[in-house]
Structures are given as structure tokens and as C-alpha cells.
Design a protein around this nucleic acid. Structure first.
Lengths: 207, 207
DNA sequence: TACAAATACTACAACGCTGTAGTATTTGTC
DNA sequence: GACAAATACTACAGCGTTGTAGTATTTGTA
């Protein structure tokens, strides 16, 4: 007689620990199966817990993913803006750019689990998340635009549409960011930096 | 006494016509609500038909979307490869490039309904579709790589990593392609071409 | 006009997900 | 050790989707 045994109880946790565990589980699911696979159910399974446990900590999937962003993206954005800080290095725009590219590659390659969900294509992502990523992205882009304007002025290059340019640069950065997450060896920092230096060299002399 | 009236019969169609109608409906749904909204059910509703009608024509969603690609992407890819054809114009790489950019913008702006689904971010897209787009994409990229190699040789520029370069160029092209689908006025052909010409001018003299 | 074939519709079972009410177990405290 | 609080689990109803078997309607043809 199959007595339909109860599922063994998962070890209990304080709300704080449980919260952390669930966010980790969510990251794991996204990294492994993509955004389209994310669901309260999938997270609960990943954490080896039943759904009501998840609902005890987060109101719904949107809230959970919002919290996930609080944790991951704040740090990510900070890293990014630190690297894109206009500093004294700006006196030599070419060296600054090469340096920046190297740092960016290292940031992404060093923490793909954080970056993949941010950079990866997604259309399943809940509004909440999408909006925040878009907002941060625009922040980064406008920072890039400023840098571009300053850099171009210093270099004395031609009149370039800095807005369009920043869009283009960001598009490239995001693209290679995705590639780095997928295949870090193929798109190494050295290779990318070499490319940038080659381009800069052909752009003619400084100032 | 609510007699639960039967739904009025939709006008009948030959399999061929029905097929076309359903593919059009699918395009419409994707264009309006994105890939994540696509389903046999959504297509049936859009076409004002019941699901069994759809199943009468296509085995499942994968088959339907595969057929959609047969119709849309073959034409799209052809347009693209025609523009990326290395011709006599290649003798003046700069003019060729500017010309090509203009043509590309016009192609995309002229048929956003075809291009949006190809260029748009998606992670809901069924494997079948994703794989084919990836294959076509790689075809286009390698074509770009060849052009880049030829162009660089002609221009006598520096040694540039043509593979990496083609990745970068394609990333930019796809990005602006998406923007053009969303907001054609903001990213006009003139503006993009001007940008390219500015960049080329600063790249130094021909040969 | 009546019939058979072509074509569309209804209805149902199955799946996976959400969210919640009610119940069982564990654990900290006396 | 017993009890109350904290925490986890079960079970259910609801929704939207897939895919199919059976039934109704339409339509071309005789």
C-alpha cells in the first residue's frame, strides 16, 4: 500500500538566509536555462523547497527579480561607472581607451553569472527588471557620450555625432560582453585590446 | 434561455490560402506583442479561427514558425547578400561603405515587419527558428569579414583582426537595425551615413 | 435539390504555472 | 519533556496553453 509519504522537511532557515538562498537559486536557473525558464516554481525546485516557502519571502516573481537586481546590478553598475570615471588618464585618450577596454573585459569575464542576465537577450524578462536595466543602460550610455565628447575634443578628431557614437560603442560593448560570458577564451582581453589599439593607430596622430 | 450559440463559421479557404493567412497572422502577433506572445492559440485568435484549423495546416508551433522563416527570411537574406556583394565599387572602399550603409538602412526601414522579428531580442523563440537565424547570421558575418579584408587591403590600413572586426560591425548593424525598426526618424539613413563618412575621413587618406 | 466531401467547430483531457487556505512538523524556551 | 511559535508542506482552485476525437456546417457537384 503506497502510503503517499510526505516530503521530508527541508532544513529551516531564517528569513534572511532563505532570501539569499532563493536569490542564488534564481541566478542559477537563469544562468543555466535562461530567462524564459524562470518561474516561482522553478526557483522553488532549484532550492529544494515548496512554493509557499518562496511566497513567504517574496510577493511574486516580479518582486523576487527586483530584489535580485538590487543585489546584482547595484554592484555591477558601480563597477561600471568606476571604470568609466573620467580621470587624469584622459590626457592620453588612446591609452585611456585601451585601459578601459581591458578593465571592462576583466569585469565581465570575472563575474559572468552577474553579467549574463544583464547582457543576455531576453523578452521574457518582467517589466520591472527590464525597465531598471534600461535605465541603468541609459546612464552608462550618457556617461560614454560625455567621455566620447571629451576624448574627441582632446584628440582633435573630426566632428562626430557623439550621441550616435555612444550608441554604437555601447552596442559593441554589450555584444562582446555577451560573447565573453559564453566563450571567454575566444574573446580575450588581449585580443580585444589589440583590436582597439590597431584602430586607434590608424586614426592618425594625437591632437 | 441562453442557448450557447455556436460560433459563426469563418469563411472557408483552400489549404494554400489558409496557410498564407495564418502566417500573416503570426507576423502580426509577433510584430504587435513580441515573440513571447506567440502561440498556436494566439495565431488562431488573430486569424479569427479555431485551433484545430491551425493544426490542420501545421503540425505544431515549431513547424509554423519554420514555415514563416522560409517565407520571410529567404527574401531578407537575399536582399542582404545582394547589398553585401563585392562589386566594382570596391575600388573606392569608402564610397562603397557609405553606399552600403545607406542601402542597409533603407532595406530595414522599408520592411520593419520582416526585420523586427529577426533583429529583436528574443529568448522565447523556438530552437528551430533560433538556429536558422544564427546560421544566416553567420553567413552574413563571414561575408562581412571577406569584405573587410578586401577593403582593408585596398585602403592599406593597419593590420586589423578581420574576424573580430566583422563581429563588431555586425553587432552595430544589428543594434541600429533594431533602433530603426522602433524609431525610424531618430536613426535616419542620412544621420548614420554622415557618421560613417566622418569616421572614414578621420581614418586618414586612401591607400 | 440532395448528397458527399471538405472544412470548421465543440469539448475534453493533460500539463505547468500561480497564489492561498489549511495542516503538519520542527524548534526554541520554560 | 511539553508547548507555542516558527516554519514547511499538502491540496486545491484558477488560468492559459497544447493536441485530438467527435460533431456540425458548408459547398461543389450530380
Amino acid at each position: 500500500m503506497p502510503t503517499a509519504r510526505r516530503r521530508p522537511y527541508t532544513p529551516r532557515m531564517s528569513p534572511a538566509d532563505r532570501r539569499k538562498q532563493l536569490l542564488d537559486a534564481a541566478i542559477e536557473v537563469i544562468a543555466r536555462d535562461g530567462y524564459s525558464a524562470i518561474s516561482i516554481d522553478a526557483i522553488a525546485r532549484e532550492a529544494d523547497v515548496t512554493r509557499p516557502v518562496v511566497y513567504g519571502v517574496f510577493d511574486d516573481l516580479g518582486a523576487l527579480l527586483g530584489a535580485l537586481l538590487d543585489r546584482q546590478e547595484n554592484r555591477a553598475l558601480e563597477q561600471l561607472l568606476t571604470v568609466l570615471e573620467p580621470g587624469p588618464d584622459m590626457r592620453d585618450p588612446d591609452a585611456y581607451l585601451a585601459q578601459t577596454v581591458r578593465r571592462l573585459v576583466e569585469i565581465v569575464a570575472g563575474d559572468p553569472q552577474t553579467w549574463r542576465p544583464i547582457l543576455a537577450a531576453w523578452d521574457t524578462t518582467p517589466e520591472v527588471v527590464r525597465e531598471r536595466i534600461a535605465r541603468d543602460r541609459e546612464l552608462v550610455r550618457s556617461r560614454m557620450q560625455s567621455l566620447l565628447e571629451v576624448g574627441l575634443a582632446m584628440r582633435g578628431g573630426p566632428e562626430i555625432d557623439a550621441e550616435l557614437g555612444s550608441h554604437g560603442l555601447l552596442a559593441i560593448a554589450e555584444y562582446f560582453g555577451r560573447q565573453i560570458c559564453e566563450d571567454p577564451d575566444r574573446f580575450s582581453a588581449d585580443r580585444l585590446v589589440a583590436m582597439v589599439e590597431g584602430l586607434l593607430a590608424s586614426l592618425g596622430s594625437h591632437k
